[in-house]
Design a protein around this nucleic acid. Sequence first.
DNA 1: TATTATGCATAAGAAAATTATGTATAATTG
DNA 2: CAATTATACATAATTTTCTTATGCATAATA
Lengths: 112, 112
Amino acid sequence: MSNSKLYKGSLTTIILKLLNESDKMYGYEITQKVKELTKGELKITEGALYPALHKLEAEGLLNVEVKKVGNRLRKYYNITESGTKESSNKLNELANYIATMQALVNPKFSLE
Amino acid sequence: MSNSKLYKGSLTTIILKLLNESDKMYGYEITQKVKELTKGELKITEGALYPALHKLEAEGLLNVEVKKVGNRLRKYYNITESGTKESSNKLNELANYIATMQALVNPKFSLE
DNA sequence: TATTATGCATAAGAAAATTATGTATAATTG
DNA sequence: CAATTATACATAATTTTCTTATGCATAATA
């Protein structure tokens, strides 16, 4: 299977990219950052985000550290070495997907 | 709900776009056209394509016409008026999604 | 003659989201 | 000061959309 798949896993890419750029982030912070960067265009729902974070942690791409801030808990995630590699893979996949879709939709962007 | 969703329905967009540009196409032809335009990057599977075509027809976005070619059947689909409108919507959604992802992934492409 | 290409289809299962809840604390607003 | 909104986590039920597997049949090619 050498061909790329139809892209449907944007969320993982977003999470890995953001965590690859910052020291650590917690879930709620990610939702706010995405809202800010996309001017409200994209809203990460909690029902999607938290399971995704748990999965990435289980796969060893993220580490988690619980911190008590005031009287509330925060789970800070930071990216692991293999998470960094996967982040790079996912970003390449995304760039490839975008190029592919542009070739389909706009003949001007034909693939070489 | 004014915000765009995470993009996961590329196939419908592809089908509507191709049919909006040609008089009529049949399923197998669509798979080949996509393969050609994307230099093999994207392969539409039949398990995804045929149900998608049936759904678009049920929604009134496509019309179907069965033709016998040689000794075999082909189902030619052509786009309806509302299909053309939906095609335009889907293409806008896609362009918007791409811009959003680029803003997330590459700060250079910040949304104005 | 066997494999590959053409042409349709559906069913089972997986993946990844939405929507709906639930719990709890902190801050703001009327 | 009471009610709402924001912060912060979580899970369950459901839906959507895909992959993989299978089935049937004809035409072309090796």
